[in-house]
Amino acid sequence: MLNKVTEDRIAIVESAAKPAKKRAWKFQLPLHLMILPGLLLILVYSYGPMLGAIIAFQDFNPARGIFDSEWSGLDNIRYVMALPGSFQIIWNTLIIAVMKIVVGLIVPIVVALMLNEVRKELFKRTVQTLVYLPHFLSWIILGGVLIDILSPSYGIVNQMLNWFGIDSIYFLGSNDWFRPVLVTSDVWKEFGFNTIVYLAALTGINPTLYEAAVIDGANRWKQTLYVTLPGMAPIIILTATLALGQVLNAGFDQVYNLYSPQVYETGDIIDTFVYRIGIVDAQYGVATAVGLFKSVVSLILLSTSYFLAYRFANYRIF
């Protein structure tokens, strides 16, 4: 009798196990449905343009469309390479991006270390509030502000220079000054944001390390050097490696709103160049070829930087 019941139970369990896979699939079906709308949209608006980028290899004619335009191989790239100043544009992009990365890495670390020494909470919070306000404003707003304060005729910066007996400088129209202005104003906008990131890392340092350092006779400076900085090292390494993926991003929003033909020589970057030949001159194939070149190099750089970040800072995107 008992045996019979056990056998029945085994039979029931076995019959349940067979469609388990099917049931699991049914239970998971909503997960697929949830993803679907987002998936369709990125397929259309992210992967669609990736396929559309084949017009980089066409003598693209909007009237004939993507399927009937003549194939031209690498002509578009050759055409751009032959343009005078195309290497200058790549160089401008690299030098502006690298200067921004280096200065933008050092300034927040120094400010975070200095803020870390502040004992008055109210003062600390006030400084934080003021320095990361520009981060939330667009380059339209900040560009408008910069154009105003740097104006050679009425700008307050030049008024101050004049007051010290220095002649007015046309900051946004001078090839000597344009890059320094880009780097300085970019750091102005973003250093507050990164300072907060570093400060958050500092609060994670184990206080007993400081106590041990004090017992070993370390003064504040030594503590900063041997406890605080090493404690920040992981996040600094992470920021630095992730920055590698950005060396072709010199900041379209900023440059586009501040530059003018006078400073193309030092300030024209890949993204502004693509915009001008693509949207303004309507040379679609050529613009796409340059954009594709940038995307491919960026893909390699980004993959490398994520790999390095994973390897040396144990970083995973998710």
């Binding site: 998936l39 990125i42 259309v44 343009p49 559309g52 915009y275 613009a287 954009g291 594709l292």
Partner: peptide, 21 residues
């Protein structure tokens, strides 16, 4: 699925193809 989404952070078709789309 995850890779399909994350890949869009690493690579894009560029300005003109997006405009056409």
């Amino acid at each position: 699925y995850a890779w399909v989404f994350v890949f869009t952070m690493l690579f894009n078709g560029g300005l003109i193809p997006l405009y056409m789309m």
